[in-house]
C-alpha cells in the first residue's frame, strides 16, 4: 500500500484544502491499487516556504498547494507566474493556465527545486484594501502599503506611485490599525477570514492580480511511485486544479459581495486603471528581460 502525505495552511473549509481533498479523491478513483492519504492542516507543519523545503528534500510531505513566490529562492523566475497586472481578466487567466504556457517555468522548477507542478489552483482576485478610500491616481500616490516580500511586487507598486513597505504578514493587522501602514493588497478570502476589513474597510477594485497556486508534488516521491499511480496523480492534479480554480474564482466574488452586504467593506472602482497598466508594463518587461523570460512573458500576454 502507498501512503501519501500532504499539508495545508488552512482548515477543511478553505478552497486549497478542498482542492487537495479533491485531488486525493481523484487519485483514489483513477488508481486501481491501494493508496491512502494523510494531510496535516492549519499550518501545523509550517508555512508554505517550509513545505517547499520538505518537498525539495522529499521528507515529511509529498504534496501541497502554495504561492509561487515561496519557491523563488530556488527558481527566481517563478514569481513571474502571477506577478501583478499579468492577466487581463479571469478568462485570460483560465485560458493561460489551461494552455500549458507555463511549461518553461515548470521545467525550471523541476530542475532547480526537485518539485513537480501537477496542476494549477488559485483564482483569488487581489485588490487594494486600505483604511482610507483610494479611488484615483492622486490618492494612490505615496500610499503607504504592505506588499509581499518579492522584488517584483515592490517594483510594480513603486511604478504605480504607491509607497510599498516590508512588513511581515502576521504584523499587517496591527500595522494598519496603528497607522504604521495605510493599507495592503489581498484577495477577498483573506480579507474576510482574518477580519482585515476591521482595519482596512475600503476596497479598490484594481484587480491587479489573479492568483496562481500550483498544486505541487515532491519529485523524489513522484519518481518512486509505480507508473500507473504516476499517471493517476498527473491526471488527478490537472483535474483537481481546474476544480480549485472554479471553486475559488466563484467564491472570490461571493465573498466580496458578502462583506459588502454586511456593511463590512466599501467597494469602489479605480478611476483610470489603464494608466496603471501603462506605468507597469515597462517594469514587467525589464523584470522578464532580467530573468531571460521575455518570450514567456509575451506568450502569456498573447494567450
Amino acid at each position: 500500500e502507498t501512503k501519501l502525505r500532504g499539508a495545508s495552511l488552512f482548515d477543511e473549509d478553505h478552497a486549497y484544502t478542498r482542492t487537495l481533498r479533491e485531488f486525493e479523491r481523484l487519485v483514489g478513483e483513477k488508481y486501481d491499487g491501494d493508496v491512502s492519504f494523510d494531510m496535516s492542516l492549519n499550518g501545523e507543519l509550517g508555512d508554505e516556504s517550509d513545505f517547499v523545503t520538505f518537498l525539495q528534500q522529499g521528507v515529511a510531505i509529498d504534496y501541497a498547494i502554495m504561492a509561487p513566490s515561496n519557491m523563488a529562492t530556488f527558481a527566481p523566475s517563478i514569481p513571474l507566474m502571477d506577478m501583478p497586472f499579468l492577466f487581463r481578466d479571469l478568462e485570460h487567466w483560465d485560458t493561460a493556465l489551461a494552455s500549458g504556457v507555463m511549461a518553461p517555468l515548470e521545467a525550471e522548477l523541476l530542475a532547480k527545486a526537485n518539485i513537480r507542478v501537477i496542476g494549477y489552483a488559485g483564482g483569488g482576485v487581489r485588490n487594494l484594501a486600505s483604511a482610507e478610500p483610494i479611488g484615483n491616481m492622486d490618492e494612490l500616490t505615496g500610499h503607504k502599503m504592505r506588499v509581499m516580500g518579492a522584488p517584483i511586487q515592490a517594483q510594480v507598486f513603486s511604478a504605480i506611485k504607491a509607497a510599498p513597505s516590508a512588513i511581515a504578514y502576521n504584523e499587517v493587522y496591527n500595522a494598519i490599525q496603528t497607522g504604521v501602514i495605510a493599507g495592503f493588497e489581498n484577495e477577498a478570502a483573506s480579507i474576510q477570514n482574518l477580519k482585515f476589513y476591521e482595519v482596512a474597510p475600503n476596497i479598490t477594485l484594481t484587480r491587479h492580480a489573479i492568483t496562481v497556486r500550483p498544486l505541487v508534488m515532491s519529485e523524489s516521491s513522484f519518481s518512486a511511485l509505480p507508473a500507473d499511480l504516476q499517471a493517476a496523480v498527473l491526471a488527478a492534479g490537472a483535474e483537481a486544479g481546474a476544480f480549485g480554480r472554479k471553486l475559488e474564482s466563484t467564491q472570490d466574488g461571493e465573498k466580496l459581495q458578502e462583506m459588502a452586504d454586511a456593511g463590512q467593506i466599501k467597494v469602489q472602482e479605480f478611476a483610470g486603471r489603464d494608466e496603471l497598466l501603462k506605468l507597469v508594463i515597462p517594469v514587467q518587461d525589464a523584470y522578464a528581460a532580467e530573468l531571460g523570460a521575455t518570450e514567456l512573458l509575451e506568450a502569456i500576454r498573447s494567450k
Binding site: 509550517g46 517550509d50 528534500q57 521528507v59 511581515a168
Partner: peptide, 20 residues
C-alpha cells in the same frame, strides 16, 4: 521512514529565521 535528521536541523535553523 518519512523523516531524516535533515528535518531536525531545518526546524531548528528556520526558527532563528524569524523577525519576531
Amino acid at each position: 521512514l518519512r523523516l531524516t535528521p535533515f528535518i531536525v536541523l531545518d526546524r531548528m535553523f528556520q526558527s532563528y529565521n524569524s523577525f519576531i
